Computed example of a mutant assay.
Amino acid sequence: MTSVLTRPPVDLEVIFPAFNEEHRLPSTVSTAVDHLARCPWSSAVVVVDNDSGDRTHDVLDGYGAAGVEVYAIGCSDHGKGAAVRRGMATSSARFVGFADADNATPFDTVDQVMPLLRQGHAAVIASRRADGASYEIEQSALRRCGGWMFRALARLTVPDIADTQCGFKFFDGPLVREVIDDCRIDGFAFDVEILARLARRGHRATEVPVAWSDVPGSTFSARRDGLRSMADLIRISLAR
């Protein structure tokens, strides 16, 4: 693991935003590194520690493989959106994106993503509602209800996207670095803002199906974060 802010350019950088993820992060990073080491493109893994209070930063020691560097950077601004933007803004990769630390989306989904990015797609995102997708482990009834409400509001801004909230999204690097300059949402609706600003520039996201699993330990709280996310979606729909 290397703790630096500026990093050499690669074909693909994968960002893992992390807040108190000392238990789930090691296996997720290991899975990502092992897979990327077998891929024909150059790549790196970047963990953005979002001001964690546990050993998130320390557990990354010893990770990495030939041709796949693991970097750790910090982000003192709280919120998943702030952490992801920090990783993207400091990247010089041709393609850049993020995945969740819980590994709910199988990492080998990247094998579907990269060919599409290379063909010129501006954004390629994992989807639990695209044709061929499935739920390996279903969410709780409360989370499903909250997800339905979130999707209904998200469609006000990005009506063509079936699933805005699967935590596995990748982008053309230079383009997304331009777009995030105007992004302000730090909470869990941050990726809807990115997709909305891309859409306003005429760039549509491409969805790829995944076999998704609900994983215990999410930092999202329906009570604490739900209302804020709904309010953020309204802000996004009204922004220009």
Results as ranks from 00 to 15, higher is better:
Pro115Thr: 03
Thr157Pro: 01
Ala123Glu: 03
Gly74Lys: 08
Lys80Asp: 04
Gly146Ile: 01
Cys75Tyr: 06
Val84Trp: 07
Ala101Lys: 05
Val68Asp: 00
Gly120Asp: 00
Gly87Gln: 09
Met88Lys: 05
Ser127Ala: 09
Gly132Asn: 10
Thr109Trp: 02
Leu153Met: 14
Gly132Lys: 13
His121Thr: 00
Ser140Tyr: 05
Arg128Gly: 09
Thr157Tyr: 00
Ala65Met: 02
Gly67Ala: 05
Cys145Met: 11
Gly132Leu: 07
Ala133Met: 08
Cys145Thr: 14
Gln112Lys: 15
Ala83Gly: 09
Ser92Pro: 00
Ser127Glu: 00
Met114Asn: 04
Ala130Lys: 08
Phe107Pro: 11
Arg94Gln: 12
Ala126Met: 04
Ala72Glu: 00
Val158Cys: 12
Leu153Val: 15
Ser134Val: 07
Ser127Met: 04
Gly120Met: 01
Ala99Gly: 15
Ala141Ile: 13
Ser92Val: 08
Gly79Pro: 10
Leu142Asn: 11
Val84Asn: 05
Thr109Lys: 10
Ala141Trp: 11
Ala130Ser: 13
Ser134Thr: 15
Gly62Lys: 10
Ala82His: 08
Gln139Val: 07
Ala66Ser: 14
His78Phe: 14
Ala122Gln: 04
Ile73Phe: 02
Gly79Thr: 09
Gln112Cys: 02
Gly81Glu: 05
Ala123Ile: 06
Gln112Arg: 15
Gln112Met: 05
Ile137Ser: 10
Gly64Lys: 11
Val68Gly: 06
Arg151Ala: 12
Glu69Gly: 07
Ala72Leu: 04
Val158Trp: 05
Leu153Arg: 14
Ala83Ile: 05
Arg129Ser: 06
Val158Tyr: 04
Ala93His: 12
Val110Lys: 03
Ser127Pro: 03
Arg151Gly: 07
Ala126Trp: 06
Cys145Ala: 15
Val96Thr: 13
Ile125Cys: 13
Ser91Val: 08
Tyr71Thr: 02
Gln119Cys: 02
Arg86Ile: 01
Thr90Gln: 13
